[in-house]
Design a protein around this nucleic acid. Sequence first.
DNA 1: CGGGTGCTTGAGTTTGCTCAACGGGCGTGG
DNA 2: CCACGCCCGTTGAGCAAACTCAAGCACCCG
Lengths: 189, 189
Amino acid sequence: MSDSENVSSYNNILSGVVKLTKMLPDGRQQIVGLQFAPDFLGRPFRASSQTTAEATTDVKLCSFPRSIVDKMIRETPELEHKLHEQALAELDEAREWMLTLGRKTAAEKVANFLYMIATHVEPGAGEDEELTFDLPLTRADIADFLGLTIETVSRQLTKLRKDGVIQIVNNRHITVPDIERLAWRAQVD
Amino acid sequence: MSDSENVSSYNNILSGVVKLTKMLPDGRQQIVGLQFAPDFLGRPFRASSQTTAEATTDVKLCSFPRSIVDKMIRETPELEHKLHEQALAELDEAREWMLTLGRKTAAEKVANFLYMIATHVEPGAGEDEELTFDLPLTRADIADFLGLTIETVSRQLTKLRKDGVIQIVNNRHITVPDIERLAWRAQVD
DNA sequence: CGGGTGCTTGAGTTTGCTCAACGGGCGTGG
DNA sequence: CCACGCCCGTTGAGCAAACTCAAGCACCCG
């Protein structure tokens, strides 16, 4: 499924990446969350206030009707606990991105984004080994994620490439020789 | 208590406002959440990743030791449910602010902030009555909340005043004759 | 071959930042 | 009591980072 929708059911992401976006009346758009496998997708107890979920890559979902899951949550505390944990994790991520959105420069934002994808795709971030991965987002999506324009994203990527921090194989395919240099540019921790 | 701390216990906010901030190594700072009475304050299950809680006004807290609350959560599902609900509410707020931080102009950000405070302080936002309230944050805090500088916040506030959208009595004390005009400037919904 | 999409690059503009000066309120100490 | 320093906020002038607009390239698909 590659469709956009206002999430009205619960879904387990089996593979792929889903973006959560918010939009202003005049079309300005912001991605407010990225969900990877094996996250849950869907808002318990409430309609998700003006947020849209859309796949950015091919996605495999396992979908459950809302009513059933709501009932299950009420009956099994462990399930609620698990969802609670995920909500807290998403909250932490959201707040981390608020720092990025509010206080980092375009260069830092782009480096941050690459760093996040790199560490997410390859969780065992080997100390000094070379990392390689595909971007799950187009330039337009990256811009919407970072609160920038497409052009600025493109320029910053070129700058990182010229500085030797990354290699760009295929527009989508990125190689990071030294993750620490990227982390430095991203101002992480 | 007017102190800054890394929250290591649970607190119930009885009155006042608490800000949650994140900071970069070089001192850049971002407020990632505001908590009003009667919110819970404190991160279940995990140390709050590099987030600091600090009162912005006089605050009355009711504090519980971590161990006891963790035990209570495990025993009473309703308590976990309540905390889960608040986490989801905070997540919605955080994402709403991501849209503001990433995609709105300085003017819209400031209007948005005032609108948020106004509706938060006076939840029964009377249709066409005049609204008046005290800002719980200094200009510096507002800037850190909106990802702007003090100067820009100040300039936007004077602009709103000159345009008759708000009146500024006391630097802290604000009057809003028509909340709808403010909402318009804030690009809300 | 033509059109569409996604990305890059350049030139000029604008928004918000930096730096600096200034003013009011307030507490402290002479 | 006034003088002083400090904090908080405002305002102005100049600058820089990111945006806008425009052109052009590569690739894919009909």
